[in-house]
């Protein structure tokens, strides 16, 4: 076992924790926390693969920075969506917006 595999295993564990939160949580904010954990695992995996193999290290680090930018954009949009859902349905649980009109 070399160091790269250990870092990748930590990234897989973060992915698993995020998936667990995404499925098991009731509220939209709890699910968002799971998504952030998964994106962190992705960034860790990218940086480890770039730093510990002969691949281009600059590309890997910039890729991780882009993942962070995407996470920030995604968190902004989810904040707005949570606001709209809680305004219209009274609470921010994932089950609230499940009824169709009509």
């Amino acid at each position: 076992m070399n160091p790269l595999v250990y870092y990748q295993v930590v990234a897989v564990l973060l992915l698993g924790l995020g998936l667990y939160a995404l499925v098991a949580r009731r509220t939209l904010v709890g699910m968002l926390i799971g998504v952030e954990l998964m994106l962190n695992g992705a960034g860790l995996s990218i940086v480890a693969a770039a730093q510990l193999t002969p691949a281009d290290a600059v590309l890997g680090q910039l890729g991780a920075l882009l993942v962070m930018g995407l996470a920030a954009a995604e968190a902004t949009l989810v904040l707005a969506i949570v606001l709209v859902v809680s305004k219209r349905f009274g609470d921010a649980s994932a089950d609230a917006p499940s009824e169709l009109k009509g």
């Binding site: 904010v29 926390i33 996470a71 920030a72 968190a75 989810v78 904040l79 606001l83």
Partner: peptide
């Protein structure tokens, strides 16, 4: 930044 945003989401939904 992201954490503060999520805290805002918790606060603004008045949960």
């Amino acid at each position: 930044a992201v954490t503060v945003l999520i805290f805002f989401a918790i606060m603004l939904t008045r949960a």
